[in-house]
Amino acid sequence: MAMTLRLSPEQDHALTLLASATGTSKHEAAVRAIVAAAARTLADATVTATAREVLPGYKTLEDDIRRARPTRRP
């Protein structure tokens, strides 16, 4: 499936550096980054769900940590 990816100059520079570091094209570097991010996100979600089921008080601790963290900016 074709897709257009619009990047800021800074994002394009970061992608160029990533492609250079991995010895791939910018397209391949972007694809690999997407797959890696998806795998991490799904793995994190699985660990979180398991911890919520197995560890008493995990949800409360998780909520406390989220409130204490500074807000992420895109």
Rank of each mutant, 00 (worst) to 15 (best):
M1Q: 04
M1I: 10
A2N: 14
A2R: 10
A2Q: 08
M3N: 09
T4Y: 03
R6W: 08
L7N: 03
S8W: 04
S8N: 12
E10C: 00
Q11S: 07
D12R: 13
D12I: 05
D12T: 05
A14S: 07
T16G: 12
T16C: 05
T16S: 14
L18H: 03
L18E: 05
A19C: 02
S20W: 09
S20P: 05
A21Y: 04
A21E: 09
G23C: 10
G23W: 03
T24G: 03
T24D: 01
K26M: 06
H27V: 05
H27F: 11
E28K: 05
E28H: 03
A29P: 00
A29Q: 00
V31I: 13
V31F: 13
A33Y: 06
A33P: 06
I34E: 06
A37D: 11
A38V: 11
A38S: 14
A39C: 05
R40G: 02
T41V: 14
L42C: 00
L42I: 12
A43F: 00
A45L: 11
T46M: 14
T46F: 00
T46N: 13
V47H: 04
V47T: 08
T48E: 15
A51C: 11
R52Q: 06
R52N: 01
L55H: 13
P56Y: 04
P56A: 15
G57E: 03
G57D: 03
Y58N: 04
Y58C: 06
K59V: 01
K59A: 04
E62Y: 09
E62H: 15
D63K: 02
R66L: 15
A68Q: 05
P70T: 14
T71A: 15
P74H: 11
P74V: 04
